[in-house]
Design a protein around this nucleic acid. Sequence first.
DNA 1: TTGTACGCGTTATCAG
DNA 2: CTGATAACGCGTACAA
Lengths: 327, 327
Amino acid sequence: MAKAANISGATVSRVLSGRTDISISEEARAKVLEAAKSLGYQPNRMARALVTGRTGLVGVWMSLHYSRYRSQVLDRMRALLGQTELAMAVTDIDEEYSWDHSFDRALRMPVEGIIAFDAEKSVEAFAKNSDRLAPRMPFVSMGAYWAHEKSYVGIDLRSGAEAAMDHLLGTGRRHVAFMAPANSGLLLRGARAESYQERMRDSGLPTRVLAAEGVRMDSVMQTLSDAIATDPKLDAILCMNDDLAIYTVFALQKMGIRPGLDIAVVGFDGIDEAEQCPCPITTVSQPASQMCSLAIEFLNAQMEDPSAEPQQIVLQPTLVIRSSSMA
Amino acid sequence: MAKAANISGATVSRVLSGRTDISISEEARAKVLEAAKSLGYQPNRMARALVTGRTGLVGVWMSLHYSRYRSQVLDRMRALLGQTELAMAVTDIDEEYSWDHSFDRALRMPVEGIIAFDAEKSVEAFAKNSDRLAPRMPFVSMGAYWAHEKSYVGIDLRSGAEAAMDHLLGTGRRHVAFMAPANSGLLLRGARAESYQERMRDSGLPTRVLAAEGVRMDSVMQTLSDAIATDPKLDAILCMNDDLAIYTVFALQKMGIRPGLDIAVVGFDGIDEAEQCPCPITTVSQPASQMCSLAIEFLNAQMEDPSAEPQQIVLQPTLVIRSSSMA
DNA sequence: TTGTACGCGTTATCAG
DNA sequence: CTGATAACGCGTACAA
């Protein structure tokens, strides 16, 4: 490229890097630009990254399974990173990690930092071995799962779940069940399931787990009718997320059961749809926007000074009470 | 690193690249491995890529908006690429392209090839300027939108839509409406909307467009009740995708209208849920799995020989008739 | 304002 | 089997 423009490589670099802190003659700039255009020349990103140490990339590690909340968070991340000079590389981490128990593929991405969102299975494994896997890589976990060694923006789902249970038990519900997808591993473990169990046990009430085959109307309906047949007194359902809660409310209505009056329904996440439903849904709303902002802020701090102390914060979700659990 | 092991950089490279085509003494290998471990040493990917010209990365350009079909396709791509040596970097392309009309961020990813899936707004723009943007970059578009200049695995939604319309009109439906999300730009344009309009016009029937505020139960229900109030004779709805169709069927049932009998409902995509519903849904099923396989095959061909002729194929979707449109 | 020379960290070549 | 040495394509002092 340099010789095509009959100009030194240094000048080419100065022009194409778009630097304003240095002065270049209009003549030289034009010559470079024209040559670049006619040759279809693009600077080699790897070579550039090798010398500058920067790629302008941030890795977002998360599960890409179908969930409105994840879509919403991803969208927020994109918007926020769009205001910076960083670009976003999304990696389906839990899937990969479950598959071969390695971060090999994920770490091929030449990122300057990593934000791991709700990455249940992999966050801890990565944080524990990060010295070996990616020394000094800026890393922030955000959401329901975090690693104590690194920066994180956690969300205290446990307190959220407790507030939800206090609300249900406090309004007189006694036959409360917990619903989660059958294959999620969240039926008996995790902040939501465990808080549910504790609160029920503390009140001397028996627990009941509802395993939905999938996050779909038909499976939720099936699960519900089985549950009601078994326990006709069922008067509240704590759903693991809003998608499930929305389906639950619709299914109940279809079965002629009044959500809120006959059976209370509470979800998690606080997606827009939970509010816009014909029967608005009580939910443990996660501060997604704040979480994303802070995660980016923490990541930036680590990127500017990789030896800086990790920043850690745990955000509180908010119980938003709506019709689906009103008396 | 080399000097820490007291061994040449060449040998370090040979060990850590994990090459089997060359022989290394056990002694040297052990020395390298140990030194690498104690130093937490990882080969620099950028330097490696600079000399080998390979990154092991494939870019997947798509919209990350909430859609079961997209999740399903993404999952399939991950599974297929998991069988190769390639890793997948997902980029939310339409959003980015709409935002600043540039591929700057997307092209920061040092990928060896790009698969663009259902990337409506950006595929053509990229293909047209690819010489300038990313010369000789292997590129395959797959799904409903493709660029003639490059390799593609298209899906002929037009013929699918026509088959759906022929089915509806052939079973005697006359008051057929087309439903799509209000902000999608797909209400009046695109293969689905246009085929609908043509078939209706050919039959001398008036068209009717149903704009759902969002892909949600409440907005679908609102849209439907308005539509039925306006046109009580409405007897069929062609939905732009299965998510919408599923909500439509549920909404109809809730309104006491029998899907299939009173009003026929047809969707697009062929996601699993469309079949598992209590009232299984007629849909224009896309050959997603085949599409992904072929796209990877085509991309591989381009990666092995960038000057090879583009491979192009258009797949036919299948109309799967189920209860939601039975007589 | 521009060019020369060097280094970034790796792999490939070619002697040893 | 191993070690020098030369690329890979950039950015950047430093000198001109």
